[in-house]
């Protein structure tokens, strides 16, 4: 097993702000944020569906805006606020979007749900009362195969109503 240590991979020391906590990491420089979250921080709530930027499943928030963690390198993200699904609830108290998704059945298999919840949170932070079309526009980068999107839209509307 000695040989595997010999691989020539450049590693960097990074400090990342993830869900408001500072994380110190030593990482191969080419590892994506998706891989680092899941493998080095055990934040497996961030899922992946293609790892090529085509499905939206791995969406996280960077300074509050949705971006795809499969296309981000942690070296670019020092000093920026990274939010994952694990950072959405306040302690044991769910975010109103999480509650609404649970109540209305907006998660079926639940695999696209973390990315969709984060995109929805970003939307509601910039637009407290979005129309159905605005919801569709904002979520158009997140694919879901189970729900037909209907209950997701209803849940976002319910949460928006409650957050006023």
């Amino acid at each position: 097993m000695k040989n595997e240590l010999a691989r020539d991979v450049e590693r960097v020391v990074l400090f990342l702000d993830v869900n408001g906590e500072r994380r110190d990491l030593l990482l191969p420089v080419h590892k994506t944020l998706l891989e680092v979250l899941r493998e080095d921080m055990q934040l497996t709530g961030t899922k992946h569906g293609c790892e090529l930027g085509e499905c939206g499943t791995c969406t996280v928030l960077i300074d509050g805006r949705p971006e795809l963690s499969c296309l981000l390198l942690p070296v670019q993200l020092q000093g920026r606020a990274i939010t994952t699904i694990e950072g959405m609830a306040h302690g044991a108290e769910l975010h109103p979007l999480q509650t609404a998704f649970a109540e209305l059945g907006a998660a079926q298999c639940g695999y696209c749900t973390p990315g969709i919840l984060l995109s929805a949170r970003s939307l509601l932070e910039s637009n407290a009362k979005p129309s159905r079309d605005e919801i569709r526009e904002a979520l158009a980068g997140n694919l879901c195969r189970c729900t037909g999107y209907t209950k997701i839209i209803e849940a976002i509307e319910l949460a928006a109503g409650r957050m006023k």
Partner: peptide, 20 residues
């Protein structure tokens, strides 16, 4: 709500690739 709703909306449901 489905019985696993809380696990799914918090990212805590463990899918096969989440196991390491």
């Amino acid at each position: 709500p489905r019985v696993d709703a809380a696990a799914k909306v918090t990212g805590r449901a463990m899918y096969a690739d989440d196991l390491l």
